[in-house]
Design a protein around this nucleic acid. Structure first.
Lengths: 360, 360
DNA sequence: CTCTCGTGCATTAACGTTAATGTCCGGCCG
DNA sequence: CGGCCGGACATTAACGTTAATGCACGAGAG
C-alpha cells in the first residue's frame, strides 16, 4: 500500500517546462493561460494523479475550509442526527468537518477549543459543556465565527440555534392536562444546562395556565453517570432507579414528562414491575422522539426535536457569519419542536364518541 | 467577537529582537537556547496569547496529525459509540479527527476519500460503503495508512478490524436452538456487505451443526430505505412490514434472529398486533445490544458488539502502521461479540428445576 | 598565546500553494 | 514605422512553521 510520494505543482511544471504558477492557474481555471497549455497541464495532472495539497493552499489563502463541530455525546440520538445533518450541509458547501467529542468534560472541551484554534478552522459549531465559557470566548476573540448549538451561553452573545425547549415542555404538559392529568411530575437530567431549565419553565407555565399547583418534588433529578471511557447512554438505568423510588411514594402522579426518551424506557420498566399500565394508570410523555420511541409498547407520545433543521440552520448561520463577518445583532434561532401523540397518553376510554381518535 | 488577527512567531521575534527560529525552538523545548531567552519568549508568547499555526507546522513536517474517519451513519448506535471511542483514542495520541459521513452513498464516499487525500491525513479509519474499493485503493496507493472497519474489502489487503459476525450469529442461533427452537428465521438488511454475509454463514453453521434444515426463505431481506436528507434509521418500520408478511405465512418459526436491534422493534410490534407473545410464541434475538434493548418488554436477548474495543483497536492498528510503515502481513482482527441473554428467549416454563435460571 | 570546541543565537532554505509583478513578443493603430 | 497594448507566460514574494547551517564569542587545553 505504499510507493511514490505525492506529485506537486512543481513536478508537473518541470516535466512540461512551465512555471509553477502557470500550472496552478491552468488547473484552477484562472485566465491568462492559453488553451493548448491548459489542456497539456490538465492531461499531465490527470496522468500523474495530481492531488492538490490543502495544507499549503489553506496556509496561503488564510482559510482552511474546515468547520469545527463540538458535540458532547454522539450516542445521544439527537446529536447523532445532528452530526449527519451538519456534515451533509457543510460538505455541500465545500467544508470539511473536524470533530471533537467532549463527553461533558470541561477539560476535553478546553483542549478541543485550543485544537480547533490551532487548526485554523473557518468556524465552529459548538454544543458547550456549559461549565465555563472561556474556551469559546477565546475562539471568538481571535475571530473564529462560532455558533452555539442547543445550549446557550448568553454571556458570550454568540449566535445560537436550538430547540424551543420551553415550548416543547409546555406542549407536553398541556397535552397531558388535556388528557385529564392533574398531577404531573417531570424527570430531568441533573446537568446545569439551559436546555433543562427552559423545559422546566415550560412545564411550570403549562401547569400555572391550567390553574394546577406545582408542589415541591414535581421536578425530579436523574443523576448522570459518566462512564470512564467514551460516552455510553446509561441513562435508562438511572431513570429506572429514580422511577422506582417515585412509585414507592404513596400517591402517584397522573402523568410523567421525561427529559429524554431514554428516561421513558426506565420509567416503563419500573411501571411494568409495579403492575401499572400506561396510559391507564399513568401517562408518559418523552422528549426527543428517538428512533425506538414509536415502537415501544405502548408507543411513546413524545416531543420531536427538529435535529436536521437545527443542524442545517446552524451551518447556514455560521457560513453567513464567515462570509459577512459578525452580525452586529447576533441571531438567536429557536426552532419549534412538535408533539407526536401516541399511545402512551391516549386515554383508554374516550370520554365522548363524537370525534374519532386521531389517526397516525 | 472579532478584533486582532493571530500572532505569529515573527511577531514575538520582532518584539523581543530575536530570530524566528530562536522563538520556535524556545517554545517547542528544543535545546540550544539559553534559559533567560527561553523564559522571555515563553512569557511573551503567553502575553500575546500565541497560538501555533497547525497548517504551517503540518506543511513543513509533512504530517497533519489528523486521522480521517469515514462512517456510513452515525444514527446507528454501534457507529455512534465507535465515533466516541475513536475520537477519544485519537485525541489521546494527539490526533484530530476529520469526519466523513457517507450515508451509504458511493459518490459521497469517493468525494470523501478525495477530500481526506487533499487534507493530507496521517491515516484513515474507514467503514466502506462496499460498492467500489477504488477510493480507498487510491488513498493507500499514495501512502496513506488505512484501516478498514467492520466491513472488509479483501481485495485491498488492508488491515481490518471488525466484529466476528459469523460467531455472533452462530451464538445467537445456537442459543435459540438450546432453548428449544427448531425452525429459525433470519431478518437481515439487503446491503451487499460482508458483515451480513458472515452473519448468515454463522446462522447456517449453527443450524447444520444441530442437524436442523435450512429451508428456502429462512433468510429474509429487509429493504433499506434511504432518506433524502441525512441518515435516519427508518429501519424498524421496514422490519415491521417484513415481519407482518412473515406472520401471515402459515407456519411460524420458533425463533427469529434479526440483523440489528432496530429490526427487533418492528418485529415486536408485528407480533404484538398478532397477539403473539415473546418468548412463549416466538423467541427473538437481536444484534447490537443498543441502549434501549435491555429495556424493551420483554427485554431483548441480543449479541453485544464490542464497539469501543473495535474502535480503539482500529486506532491502535492505524497508529502502528503510521509509525512503522505498512506491515508486510496486514493484520485482520476479529473481535468476539458476546451474547446477552434476556427475557426474549427465556423459556416461559423451565423444563427442569434442577438448575436455577441464570441470573443477570 | 593560539587552537579548539561548545554554547547561543542568527541566517538560510524548505514545505506547496496562490497573488502580485515582470517580461517578452506579436499585432494593431496612427 | 514607432509606439502601444495585451496575451501568455515567467519571476518573485508571501503564508507560518521547522530543519540545516553559519557565525561570533568565551572558556579550556596545549
Amino acid at each position: 500500500m505504499a510507493q511514490g510520494r505525492r506529485h506537486t505543482l512543481r513536478d508537473i511544471a518541470e516535466t512540461l517546462n512551465l512555471s509553477v504558477n502557470t500550472v496552478s492557474r491552468a488547473l484552477s481555471g484562472k485566465d491568462g493561460i492559453g488553451d493548448r497549455t491548459r489542456a497539456l497541464v490538465r492531461a499531465e495532472a490527470e496522468r500523474v494523479g495530481y492531488v492538490p495539497n490543502t495544507l499549503a493552499r489553506s496556509l496561503v489563502l488564510g482559510s482552511a475550509m474546515t468547520l469545527g463541530l463540538v458535540i458532547t455525546n454522539p450516542s445521544n440520538p439527537f446529536y447523532a442526527q445532528l452530526i449527519s445533518g451538519i456534515e451533509l450541509r457543510a460538505r455541500a458547501h465545500g467544508y470539511s468537518l473536524l470533530l471533537v467529542v467532549t463527553d461533558e468534560s470541561e477539560e476535553i472541551e478546553a483542549r478541543g477549543a485550543e485544537s480547533l484554534l490551532r487548526s485554523s478552522v473557518s468556524g465552529a459549531i459548538v454544543v458547550p459543556v456549559q461549565g465555563r465559557a472561556d474556551p469559546w470566548r477565546r475562539l471568538g476573540g481571535v475571530g473564529v465565527p462560532t455558533v452555539l448549538l442547543n445550549r446557550d451561553l448568553p454571556e458570550l452573545g454568540y449566535p445560537f440555534v436550538g430547540t424551543d425547549n420551553e415550548l416543547g415542555a409546555y406542549q407536553a404538559t398541556a397535552h397531558a392536562i388535556a388528557r385529564g392529568a392533574r398531577s404531573i411530575v417531570v424527570l430531568e437530567e441533573d446537568l446545569p444546562i439551559t436546555t433543562i431549565a427552559n423545559r422546566i419553565a415550560g412545564f411550570r407555565r403549562a401547569m400555572t395556565e391550567a390553574g394546577l399547583p406545582v408542589p415541591r418534588g414535581s421536578v425530579i433529578s436523574v443523576p448522570t453517570r459518566r462512564l470512564e471511557e467514551a460516552a455510553l447512554p446509561w441513562q435508562p438505568e438511572q431513570a429506572y432507579r429514580v422511577a422506582r423510588r417515585l412509585l414507592r411514594r404513596g400517591t402517584l402522579p397522573d402523568a410523567v414528562v421525561v427529559g429524554n426518551d431514554y428516561f421513558a424506557l426506565g420509567l416503563y420498566r419500573a411501571l411494568h414491575e409495579h403492575g401499572l399500565k400506561v396510559p391507564a394508570d399513568m401517562m408518559v410523555i418523552g422528549f426527543g422522539d428517538y428512533p425506538f420511541s414509536e415502537f415501544l409498547q405502548p408507543s411513546l407520545t413524545t416531543v420531536r426535536l427538529p435535529a436536521l433543521e437545527v443542524g442545517s440552520t446552524a451551518v447556514d448561520l455560521l457560513l453567513e457569519q464567515i462570509a459577512d463577518g459578525p452580525a452586529e445583532e447576533p441571531r438567536r434561532q429557536l426552532i419549534a419542536p412538535t408533539l407526536v401523540t401516541r399511545d402512551s397518553t391516549r386515554p383508554p376510554i374516550p370520554e365522548s364518541r363524537t370525534r374519532p381518535l386521531d389517526g397516525h
